[in-house]
């Protein structure tokens, strides 16, 4: 007789908890991107720039609704029991980042819609006259518009940092076990958003402002990556092995070339030259920043699932 005793794990759990596929990094990327756009739009509305119809803060809340919905759809595809997703909203677990995220997303949608209705596009005003009336009502209440902008800014920052905290709260994966992951994902979302808004901005002053802002976010993101790696490399053996996945291990090339090189360093140089009028503004820098943001989520999610506390498993 052969007795098989499983106390903790089985082959589906060890050696790798590799249960998250493309849906999760795509959701984290889109969530962070929308969070960044919300923050920027909120900042512009808070400053009163929405009165100019060419302000990007008129467009980005609408785009945010679409992109966030796509991200939520990706998340939905990942669910094992799709019919029961609504149960997340029957409770609020204060110690669960997953629960926080679910409820933040519920609050984010109305905030995005409120920001969008501050200055609805002409076709919507004609199609739904109520939006015209609402916009006029809001226009006569600048304090309320500033409050909407502030709410958008704060909720954007919360959503952006949550995408990182969601992973860092999962202590079973040493690579994710870092307090820097939240700020890193937030900065990446802000840089992707600034890059995109810089790409679509019609006003020259706004384009230059966003290119400068993007450069600042990229530099901070680089600093966060350095701190993230130092934190891992100076912690326990499992954390060191997790850092090794990105420092000589199987994710080294895609991380340093795709994320750091092409996603941060090269666009930083290209945009810095453009801001100083040494070369013309091109779509290349922003596109690389956005692609780098997506690559960061893929690398961190995939490498994180390979990292492990058991030393024999983390070898590569």
């Amino acid at each position: 007789m052969t007795e098989l005793l499983i106390t903790r794990s089985n082959h589906l759990v060890d050696p790798y908890v590799h249960v998250w596929a493309w849906q999760i990094p795509v959701y984290l990327f889109l969530g962070g991107w929308v969070a960044g756009m919300m923050s920027l739009a909120g900042y512009f509305q808070w400053q009163g720039r929405h009165r100019d119809r060419q302000c990007t803060c008129v467009l980005t809340p609408w785009l945010g609704v679409v992109l966030l919905s796509l991200g939520m759809f990706a998340l939905f595809l990942d669910l094992e029991h799709k019919r029961y997703f609504w149960r997340l909203y029957t409770t609020f677990e204060i110690a669960s980042p997953m629960s926080w995220g679910a409820w933040i997303l519920v609050v984010v949608y109305p905030a995005l819609l409120a920001a969008a209705l501050v200055q609805p596009p002409q076709w919507l005003r004609r199609a739904v006259p109520a939006t015209e009336a609402l916009a006029s009502w809001l226009e006569s209440r600048p304090a309320l518009v500033r409050a909407v902008g502030l709410a958008s800014l704060v909720l954007g920052l919360a959503l952006g940092i949550y995408t990182g905290i969601l992973l860092s709260a999962l202590g079973a994966r040493p690579l994710w076990s870092s307090a820097i992951l939240g700020p890193l994902f937030l900065l990446s979302g802000l840089s992707s958003a600034a890059a995109f808004v810089h790409l679509v901005a019609r006003r020259r002053d706004e384009r230059v402002f966003l290119a400068r802002a993007d450069n600042l976010f990229l530099m901070l993101e680089l600093a966060a990556i350095v701190l993230f790696l130092i934190g891992l490399a100076t912690a326990t053996e499992a954390h060191k092995q997790a850092a090794g996945l990105l420092l000589g291990g199987p994710y080294t090339a895609v991380f340093w070339v795709g994320v750091v090189g092409l996603g941060i360093a090269v666009p930083l140089v290209v945009q810095s030259l453009a801001v100083r009028h040494r070369i013309q503004h091109t779509p290349l820098g922003p596109i690389m920043v956005i692609a780098g943001g997506l690559a960061l989520r893929f690398v961190i999610v995939y490498a994180g699932q390979v990292s492990h506390w058991a030393p024999q498993v983390a070898q590569f």
Partner: peptide, 20 residues
């Protein structure tokens, strides 16, 4: 001195320098 993965990073740095 370094493996396959790091060699790609080195190649990238040299390539970017060359392109610049």
């Amino acid at each position: 001195a370094f493996g396959d993965e790091t060699s790609l990073v080195v190649a990238f740095v040299i390539g970017i320098g060359f392109g610049f």
